[in-house]
Design a protein around this nucleic acid. Sequence first.
DNA 1: TAGTGGTCTAGACCACGAT
DNA 2: TCGTGGTCTAGACCACTAC
Lengths: 236, 236
Amino acid sequence: MKKYELVANDIKAKIISGYYAKGSILPDQKTLAEDFAVSKITIKNALDNLANAGFVLKTSGFGTVVIGPSTLITDKDAPASNFEGLTDQAGAERVASKVIKFDLEFPSAEVKTHLNINDEEPVYHIIRLRLLDGDPFIIENTYMPVALVPGLSQSVLESSIYTYIHDTLHLKFAGISRNIQARQADELDMRYLNVSKNSAILEIEQIVWLVNGKPIEYSTSRNDSNKRSYYLFETM
Amino acid sequence: MKKYELVANDIKAKIISGYYAKGSILPDQKTLAEDFAVSKITIKNALDNLANAGFVLKTSGFGTVVIGPSTLITDKDAPASNFEGLTDQAGAERVASKVIKFDLEFPSAEVKTHLNINDEEPVYHIIRLRLLDGDPFIIENTYMPVALVPGLSQSVLESSIYTYIHDTLHLKFAGISRNIQARQADELDMRYLNVSKNSAILEIEQIVWLVNGKPIEYSTSRNDSNKRSYYLFETM
DNA sequence: TAGTGGTCTAGACCACGAT
DNA sequence: TCGTGGTCTAGACCACTAC
């Protein structure tokens, strides 16, 4: 494990235990560097991590102050970075998938744009209902270039696409961009998510990139708003 | 301006102009460092910035690949970091505010938790309708500790609270945490946002911190979902 | 003015992806 | 194995906040 991770974990533990109280100011970076017997830049890296996670605020000229963990985080929150997919998040035994649609298509103008491909490149069009502990949880509407994900099958769709991509195809995700919106429930939502007419739906539209810079997924996920929200933290 | 910002701006301009094409791999950091006549760490800082903004993906062992700007960003998007408040984002001449409620209260349990204050600390409770170019845009339901924001008045509320906090009280924001949810329109939404019954509302619940680590705002903002969405980018 | 975190350097070494 | 980005060092200097 990296030095700055060790330092970050140590400080984080002291924040959670109350040793560093919410609202208090941490020792300055030079002192921390001496205490942990590491360089100042290693301390900075550690504090940067804690700042990104919303545990501390750093201000030049002032110091580093403890603010977290956030009171806005709930158990409904989608994980900050959920590259793993639902199966890895919740555990395979809790997740089931019902395949609603599994087709091959030429990409629409929208899909072409988001996946950065040509007219002729075929894509999978997949609609799945994901169930968590047997209850309807997400409807995923996914497009993937066939060239990048060969051999996709019904049985893969019924378990985990991400596991197939990682373990079988040995492809690695590098980034994800999301657009979050509120929507009114449509026919599909009412039918599969078990929500009433007009209820609110949280929609997450996303593009997933591989390490080599190619978009491998363009998808739209819809949740019952009562079952999911989205947390994030930003510094100035 | 800092060196890494100059470098980042230069590379960003070359990405936008197409000099570095989407999908292409940038020269390695050592080469870039020589080209720009700066140290490798300065190049790393510059690329970190571009990576956070979703323009490039960096992968150790592979390289830095151009992916941005994102095709998911729309003109509906709330800015990634909107510390400025709506007035500064859109321009004072485009924004108007109608004060629906302006009260003093003792904090509820929820407000106490999020603002990290005691039972006895009075808070402002403010509900405002913000109009953009004359059209209803956001309903903001805001709580602020009176002790941190003395002298709040009706006339301040009708222009910009943030401007008052920055320019008059000389307080500085350092961080913000948000929770994004989908909601069904309620009575207030229908009355003030001009939306129909049952339409979808994008709700952003947020806490804003000052540099000294004190929460200065706990608020809930509600938008017509057709007028606003939320974009974000993450790397592994 | 004192003290904080940020930037920047040159250079050694490490972890990881591709082949 | 090669080449990439990441980590880490010691130390100089800068920019900012608060008093």
